[in-house]
Design a protein around this nucleic acid. Structure first.
Lengths: 350, 350
DNA sequence: GATTAGCACTCACCACTTCCGAGTGCCAAC
DNA sequence: GTTGGCACTCGGAAGTGGTGAGTGCTAATC
């Protein structure tokens, strides 16, 4: 069932032409644009074959062929060659990313922005997964009676904080003691190994009456857990409206509706990432095409993600969502470049 | 140029019908739906008059009339009567707002969400304008050599923080002294009266060598200034695609494109707010209709905002953007209710 | 002077038709 | 396996006519 050489070329040509023109491509125009050394009838036979194998399909009887999801899949897996960016393209991307941002979150945002600008598609980034990072510092600051700020400094230089409610009569000094104890005992532990019990044990040798303690500990614990929460940043949703692929209002609405539920998208990205990690297959990028994407309204999209790193144990994702009728090679090389730059800049921060 | 009574009723009826049906309304259907005690010919004369005055217009020669921006303006200014919400509507809104959120930012977000859900339109909120709030606490926490976290506690219970870079050899203790000095001298001052000079003066009596100080002070100062920065939160952009008013892809794209530039929208809201404040005219809500809105692509929208309060001196805005062909009365009463609830909940927080 | 009935006119919209051409499958010949 | 030829398909553009809701205007009436 391996495709012979010419059939591969035909499929590739169909994808290329369709991406470029957004029109079903027929045997004749294929001959005109590419110099196959055979007649259109031969190509017709090849195309019939490709259709039987599920790589291409007809929108209606008397039209040319368009790639199916499977066709795109074959294309990205073994047909396309990734080209390199021109110096100018590289410059544009770099200009957007570097600059004076010196906080990781800002940096990641700017990379996401750059990615959307460079591709013209929706781009996204997931905040770093901090489960594997560990506590470096913990401070509890009294704000006013009954209210305190828990500040966590994690490895990889991430700072998180959260306002929590505490019993009114707890003093500044008690808080200081408490945070010191927790800090001392939990430093170095990965976040995902910290449980309520660990926190409780860590606080044992303070002399604060335990009923009071309980609430604070619980708040401290949730603050730690919340630091681990994933957040997603999406940009450029409206750009999808520019593509004829979504010119039907219904499609556009479904797509943007789904994208507006950022929690759902975040969940999907996370799931994809986990799947890829556990299956051990780790390309530098991941692609989902059309129906492979289980999010509603993304049937005509492709979803490409990559992983960035912050320190040794912490990573997150950046990604692009565009019409599946996209120039994969260019998009991938752009995303790869953004990722590379982002990694470099993140390294500088630590 | 005052409209006589019947003409007012005609205009009102035209707006009501057009909002309900999205179809140009003609003299005959007007007679059918409302019981004017006159013939269609009379209404035709009235309508010709209204058109001459600029309240209504024809999309093309042989069609009915639709309200012009001016017509809507007249309608909201003096024709419509604001109706009250049903118990059920109130409940739905309340359910979304109250709940367990106990941080102001979260609360405001949830109100915004609720507003979008209730109206079916885009909703937005501006973070509180903190210029008028004052410093209650300031702490500088060392994170690691060269890096510190500036934590500001402002009146109205707002907590802001920022990671800043500091000279490597500054110690924890020095930082503590410094923040104490600044805190002591600036507490009670409104944010907009704090300048770099004030900060410098406040730090005078610490014994830290001044060249070192300069950089930290500058960072502290920018941290304070940044706390004052406005941020905007927009929700439900995709919902606009559901309205036939934006069924043309071009319009939809312009609209969503503009809305995606949140800085621009924020600037506009701020400008509107300032204008209203300085002109002294302070309704409980503000409306901009169609061309009155200077943002690109919002010609077919109306933009309604209201002000929420946090403590005595601090306020922000919530708002709705929908098609100008909207049921103003319902939208306004919903927004009013959300605002009321939000104010109540914010009060509870302090 | 305001209101009304009547009438000729306008024009978007819909359904219907026609026509064109790019594309197809298939077959017989090379 | 490749090719030329041919009948067939069908979406889309362009044209057509009828319909109906709407208009403005005029002359008669209250």
């Amino acid at each position: 069932m391996e495709l012979d050489d010419r059939k591969k070329r035909v499929l590739q040509a169909i994808v290329d032409d369709y991406v470029a023109t957004n029109e079903p491509v027929g045997s004749k125009s294929l001959i005109e644009r590419h110099n196959f050394q055979v007649s259109s009838a031969t190509l017709r036979n090849d195309m019939a074959e490709l259709e039987k194998l599920g790589f291409i399909e007809k929108p209606h009887t008397s039209a040319g062929r368009i790639p199916s999801d499977r066709g795109y899949r074959e294309y990205v897996d073994s047909l396309m060659k990734i080209d390199t960016l021109t110096a100018k393209e590289q410059e544009e991307i770099e200009a957007n990313i570097s600059g004076t941002v010196d906080e990781a979150a800002e940096l990641i945002k700017s990379a996401t922005h750059s990615l959307s600008e460079a591709t013209g598609f929706v781009s996204l980034s997931m905040s770093p997964r901090l489960r594997k990072s560990f506590l470096k510092q913990m401070k509890i600051l009294m704000i006013e009676p009954g209210k305190a700020l828990v500040v966590l400094v994690l490895s990889a230089g991430v700072v998180k904080d959260k306002v929590v409610r505490i019993p009114n009569y707890l003093t500044d000094e008690q808080m200081f003691k408490l945070s010191g104890a927790i800090e001392k005992n939990l430093t170095g532990k990965p976040l995902d190994e910290i449980t309520f019990v660990t926190v409780e044990t860590a606080a044992k040798d303070t002399e604060i009456p335990s009923p009071l303690l309980k609430q604070v500990l619980y708040e401290a614990y949730t603050a730690i857990k919340q630091a681990d929460q994933l957040s997603i940043y999406l940009e450029g949703e409206h750009k999808m409206l520019a593509y004829p692929d979504f010119s039907s209002l219904g499609r556009a609405r479904d797509l943007l509706g789904t994208l507006s539920d950022s929690g759902m998208v975040a969940g999907y990205v996370n799931e994809m990432e986990n799947l890829a990690t556990s299956s051990g297959k780790k390309d530098s990028y991941m692609i989902r095409i059309g129906q492979e994407i289980t999010l509603e309204g993304l049937d005509d999209c492709s979803f490409i993600t990559a992983t960035y790193n912050m320190g040794d144990t912490v990573s997150g994702n950046i990604g692009v969502i565009g019409p599946k009728r996209m120039d994969y090679s260019r998009v991938i090389s752009k995303m790869d470049f953004v990722k590379k730059k982002l990694n470099e800049e993140l390294k500088k921060l630590t």
